[in-house]
Design a protein around this nucleic acid. Structure first.
Length: 214
DNA sequence: ATGACGATTTACT
DNA sequence: GTAAATCGTCATA
């Protein structure tokens, strides 16, 4: 056990979503459950949702409801939403309180707890279906299923390190040349915002989600 | 009260 | 390649 693992503090989240989404790459998303093991993965793909003017955001036009209330909370808050009647997605709220900025975590390179992740990802499916390791966390809903993240964690304070948090990477940060910047995925309804380059992913990383065809 | 739809994933032809 | 799964949320009336 060499160095001491460092959990992100409040000030680490006080950046607009465009900046934070890039800063998150290479750091660790960690999940701990009472009496459970520690699960984690390196963040390799993110998207930024940059405020009320962003028509792809759940907070577009300043929309503020029980569902997305966490987007308006302090930086360092979790925003977890439920969609398509079956999937959860995890966001890191950032910028400043009252400003609905958030970074969506879209993919992880699994590091700890792979067996549990495999079991959870295969749960409830018929047949002997099993995901390849590269697909354990290669999508926003996949990673939530693998790590056991659901709406009970919506609004969680990431700086308290209870349940879910961000842990600083120990080695070198990811170099900008190793990051690709593209349009966000699945936001075709957002008009001009659908093509804004607000997605970042580690270049040539097999754990990154594969964009849908067509 | 009702209806359309989604920051997705998996199954199937 | 296309379709199904599946339900909370939001806009409209």
């Amino acid at each position: 056990m060499s160095g001491h693992a460092t959990r992100w503090k409040r000030s680490d989240y006080e950046f607009d979503a465009r900046e934070l989404a890039q800063r998150l790459l290479g750091h660790l998303l960690v999940r701990t459950e009472p009496g459970g093991e520690r699960l984690s993965g390196v963040i390799v793909e993110t998207e930024a949702y940059v405020g009320p003017e962003d028509l792809a955001s759940h907070a577009r036009r300043g929309l503020r409801t029980a569902r997305n209330e966490s987007m308006y909370a302090r930086p360092g808050t979790a925003y977890v939403y439920f969609t398509y009647g079956m999937h959860h997605c995890f966001n890191v709220v950032c910028a400043s309180e009252g400003a609905p900025h958030a970074a969506l975590i879209r993919a992880l390179e699994p590091r700890e707890g792979l067996e549990t992740m495999r079991r959870r990802r295969a749960a409830g499916r018929r047949g002997a279906w099993a995901p390849a390791d590269r697909d354990l966390c290669s999508g926003p809903a996949r990673l939530c299923a693998a790590m056991g993240i659901d709406r009970s964690l919506d609004g969680a304070d990431l700086t308290r390190g209870v349940g879910v948090f961000i842990e600083a990477a120990r080695g070198e940060p990811i170099a900008p040349r190793d990051v690709v910047n593209t349009a966000r995925i699945g936001v075709g309804y957002a008009g001009a915002w659908a093509t804004a380059p607000l997605r970042w992913a580690v270049r040539d990383c097999e754990h990154v989600s594969r964009a849908p065809r067509a």
